[in-house]
């Protein structure tokens, strides 16, 4: 039986949380001729064993500094950008997978990159502004197998996903890299797909300001859309923490993406 090895970067943060949900999600994906092996990744040798990787929530500055000291940043960049293996980052993981980040510590922060986006760290502020919100994630409908789709249509897949946002980052801009840089890397880039948004209520003052700027009769919208889930080719990122819930639908969806990606390599 062929084994698909999925690693969780285990430098710090919500490692056990992801492993717990991966183990629950795996039977749902049930690849007939393959089984999953889940691995904590702390070294380049462990990373080399992986077909796919999750970078968990935690403190992105800590993970970045520790990865740098362990000589893991370059192997991680190679894993994401050159080998283009499936990678999913949650919260701090999303920050690390972004090409650009703002509101970083003084002197800047080393990133892995791979997602052509700019994120703002701690977008909503400190812990007191942390929140949960129901999200509509259309891609979850993809997780259905043909046999179950009739049953699940309008059911399981339609159920909103409880997004847990803890000192969360948000994607401020997508497709940020200059054409010069693209030529330099020389690869034909797939654009960034927006996979999920959070409808944030505008503050009264913001709404008023926008209202005043509009011609008479126009009405400012009451919500703003924050981009909270993105995908670009092999790289997926969420600014919320599915690993802090018991809902493993995103893990099931992502493991299926992993299987699709490793299939050619195994055949």
């Amino acid at each position: 039986m062929a084994t698909v090895t999925v690693g969780v970067l285990a430098l710090q943060g919500g490692v056990a949380e992801h492993l717990s949900l991966l183990k629950r999600a795996a039977p749902q994906v049930s690849p007939d001729d393959r089984s999953f092996h889940f691995l904590q990744v702390r070294t380049a040798a462990e990373l080399a064993k992986c077909d796919a990787l999750i970078i968990p929530g935690g403190e992105s500055t800590t993970m970045s500094i520790v990865a740098q000291r362990l000589g893991l940043l370059e192997p991680l960049r190679e894993f994401v950008k050159i080998q283009q293996k499936p990678v999913w980052g949650t919260c701090a993981g999303l920050v690390l997978l972004a090409e650009e980040a703002s509101a970083v510590k003084k002197g800047g922060q080393e990133l892995i990159g791979g997602l052509d986006v700019k994120v703002i760290r701690n977008r909503y502020g400190t812990q007191i502004q942390s929140f949960t919100a129901d999200l509509r994630l259309p891609f979850l409908a993809e997780t259905q197998t043909p046999s179950s789709s009739a049953v699940q249509q309008g059911g399981e897949a339609e159920k909103p996903f409880r997004g847990v946002f803890i000192r969360a980052p948000v994607v401020e801009k997508v497709n940020v890299s200059s054409s010069a840089r693209e030529e330099e890397t020389g690869k034909d880039k797939e654009p960034v797909e927006i996979m999920g948004v959070y409808q944030r209520q505008k503050s009264t003052s913001q709404r008023k300001q926008e209202q005043d700027a509009l011609p008479a009769g126009g009405e400012a919208t009451s919500t703003d859309e924050d981009i909270v889930a993105v995908r670009q080719r092999n790289v997926f990122g969420t600014s919320f923490h599915p690993e802090l819930t018991t809902d493993f639908r995103i893990h099931v969806w992502w493991l299926k993406q992993v299987l699709d990606a490793v299939k050619p390599a195994l055949n």
């Binding site: 430098l11 710090q12 943060g13 490692v15 935690g58 403190e59 919260c91 847990v164 803890i166 923490h241």
Partner: peptide, 9 residues
């Protein structure tokens, strides 16, 4: 949850 994100640190 915030404490969970501090684990290992």
């Amino acid at each position: 949850g915030l404490a969970q994100m501090l684990k290992g640190g």
